[in-house]
Nucleic acid binder design. Sequence first.
RNA 1: AAAGCAAGCCGGCUUGUCGCUGUUUGAGAUCGCAAGAUCGAGAAGAGAGGAAAGUCCGGGCAGUACAGAGCACCGCACUUCUUAACAGGAAGGUGCUGUCAGCCUUGGCGGACAGCAACGGAAAGGGCCACAGAAAAAUACUACCAUCAACUUCGGUUGUUGGAAAAGGUGAAAAUGUGAGGUAAGAGCUCACAGGUCUGUUUGGCAACAAAUGGAUCGGGUAAACCCUGCGGACUGAAAGACCAAAUACACCCCAAUGAAACGGCUCGUUUCGCUAUAGGGGAGGGUAGGUUGCUAGAUCCUAACGGUGACGUUAGGGUUAGAUAAAUGACAGGUUAAAACAGAACCCGGCUUACUGGCUUGCUUUUUUC
RNA 2: GGCGCCGUAGUUCAAUGGAUAGAAUAGAAGUUUCCUAAACUUUAGAUAUGAGUUCGAUUCUCAUCGGGGCCA
Length: 118
Amino acid sequence: MNILKNTFGKEEKLCSEKDIENLYKVGSSFLNHPIVFYYLLMPDLKDTQVLVSVSKKKFKNAVDRNLIKRRLREAYRLHKFALTHKYHLALVYIGNEMLPYQQIERSVTQGLERIAKG
RNA sequence: AAAGCAAGCCGGCUUGUCGCUGUUUGAGAUCGCAAGAUCGAGAAGAGAGGAAAGUCCGGGCAGUACAGAGCACCGCACUUCUUAACAGGAAGGUGCUGUCAGCCUUGGCGGACAGCAACGGAAAGGGCCACAGAAAAAUACUACCAUCAACUUCGGUUGUUGGAAAAGGUGAAAAUGUGAGGUAAGAGCUCACAGGUCUGUUUGGCAACAAAUGGAUCGGGUAAACCCUGCGGACUGAAAGACCAAAUACACCCCAAUGAAACGGCUCGUUUCGCUAUAGGGGAGGGUAGGUUGCUAGAUCCUAACGGUGACGUUAGGGUUAGAUAAAUGACAGGUUAAAACAGAACCCGGCUUACUGGCUUGCUUUUUUC
RNA sequence: GGCGCCGUAGUUCAAUGGAUAGAAUAGAAGUUUCCUAAACUUUAGAUAUGAGUUCGAUUCUCAUCGGGGCCA
């Protein structure tokens, strides 16, 4: 277990525009309120790559968007070993109001388990 | 002490576990003869604001354009100062509003204090001023006065021509106001007092302007509608700009080369295909993904002294590593009586505006208590 | 990050600075009909917000709020 650290470095972030387009076009998706999960199996990857998104229309202030993104990232970081394979993954927050960390964490956990089952 | 108003300042701290982004150091690993290059566990220390916001002004910086001048367009507008610059700021002037006390007196005067002002020109020009009103800028409807004509109940009535701008109470605004003279009736037509505008002189002030005095004049408002005058402005913004550059494709250049296959043991030879082509290799090009740079020490901050009414300036001493790139500060459990508000750097500064928790300091006003 | 544009009834659009902001459609009530539709009559409903200029502001100026657009 010591080898599997709860890190979240640059290699685990999805940055390439082409990969993002491909994920939204080809990848599967489902809703686990208040988060939409997009995922695509990528067996050759070294690490699963993740992006986090919050709509500017739903949250006007940059502070609120940052806080939600931080909570999503934190929840993913602590529970990413639920995944057994490597994926491209997108977490899109579509809720209309701020939720506390515990609810977001529960939603992320359930979503990751569903992806791991296939 | 409490309440209210105004100005200024602060804009949480801290313990533990896990994690993020730079900087410094770095066990060790890989490549290499070496020099060195790449990766890198761990450690140390740093890591959003007073508004980072809105993008409303002004600059730096960068690129493009550019002989000079003018027009157009845009912006600004009392004066002086401040500054890199400004539509910011300081001081002053003028005007308006409010409060207070005073004077004459019943609506004015000058004074103190506070607040506000996009505060050049309407006497360069044309335009507009609804409704109402005779009339909205040099206009004439009623009424007034004079002359003439007609009629006449001899009181006048009606009409023509002319004078006049006093009366009409409508309007947001009515030809400067009051009084007297004057006249056929009237009129700044004349006079006195008061007021406004333009202008000359003297005094004070750097200036705006103020005071005194002389002359001319009485021309409504609107420039935050057009316009005129003066001053300023080239355009575009870090998604600017500079450098390196994978794969693929494209147009260009070079190379191999007396091509390939079949008949045949081989050469020559013959047949077919190709025959200036295609395919292959290489070069260089702009340039995509991506990367490096621009990229954080500055018109910088604090303190003191001096100069200045002040904004601010000068000198001295001290302090000061955020620099990300789908974008770094979070999660959990506590402590601090409570930690809550507005809110997240994106090239950098000076202002303005807007949002806001709790508290501190100073000044003013009111009430209460004690000396 | 930067640059320009626009906010009028529930909706789509008008309105030289000038009377009570107009039209279509949607809504409500009524007439007609056995009932509905259509038609007809009536009615309610708005200048994003706050200041300023002006006698007077949807219009002009400033600030704030909101919406959508362009630049890789």
